[in-house]
Design a protein around this nucleic acid. Sequence first.
DNA 1: CCTTGACCTTCCAGTTGCTGGAAGGCGCAT
DNA 2: ATGCGCCTTCCAGCAACTGGAAGGTCAAGG
Lengths: 136, 136
Amino acid sequence: MNIGDVAERSGLPAKTIRYYEDIGLIRPKRGGNGYRAFGNADVHKLAFLGRARSLGFSIEECRALLALYEDEGRASSEVKQVAEEHLEQIDRKVAELQAMRTTLAKLIQRCYGDNRPDCPILDDLAGEDSATTAHG
Amino acid sequence: MNIGDVAERSGLPAKTIRYYEDIGLIRPKRGGNGYRAFGNADVHKLAFLGRARSLGFSIEECRALLALYEDEGRASSEVKQVAEEHLEQIDRKVAELQAMRTTLAKLIQRCYGDNRPDCPILDDLAGEDSATTAHG
DNA sequence: CCTTGACCTTCCAGTTGCTGGAAGGCGCAT
DNA sequence: ATGCGCCTTCCAGCAACTGGAAGGTCAAGG
């Protein structure tokens, strides 16, 4: 199978597949013409990676998950730990974004948004401590 | 004022301040020794930038906000629009993370996390369509 | 047989927002 | 003069790709 087919079947762009080979996530064979020659196992791995990435796992986490996947003797606790750490990471990120959201929404609400220059959003950013401020 | 003082007063690392000069967010003067010579206005701008960044505005959004801040004739609607677009961006990101979170939490819950190899998390990533699967 | 076009290859650069480090200059105290 | 702590510039690297240039390959059509 050539990279174009694999891209279609795995849902990943060809560029990304080449990149994944570069960083050692997959090791497709090569044909006599220099083209990558993928097998079904490669497609399967790539789809695995795509799903893991879509859950937000980093490349290194994906590498670890893939290794666990291929290790018949793994303990599911190892997988679970990777997943739990990632979940915590997500939760931290969500909390951070929610905090920003709260502050920003308050500022927006107080801004008239008309053609006059007075703006509580700018006032806040400028450090005028009116009411809302609660940054980083 | 030297960069060290400004870093302390603005809360931004010296490296970041130099970077902000590089990309044209600030334009401190220079003394005869080649050192940057900051004024209070620079410190103020940098603090503004720090707060905007802490609300998640991109550098380019910060640039726009700073320009609006310095434009006495601005309309607050312009500021509000920048802020509202950023708010929507945040909401999209939060939704994305929540979706990941939901899927991931379900998988984690179904994994025993013991020393046996069977693992619903890996099964899901491998594409075995049991129950939970719903990837991006 | 030759050309056309869609593939494939490699390599380099750019994205975002810094951060670290090397190599060297400046200013003050000893 | 020497040491220390500033300051300067420039180069590299992080994550995870993405775009594009320059060129090789392959199957089809004239």
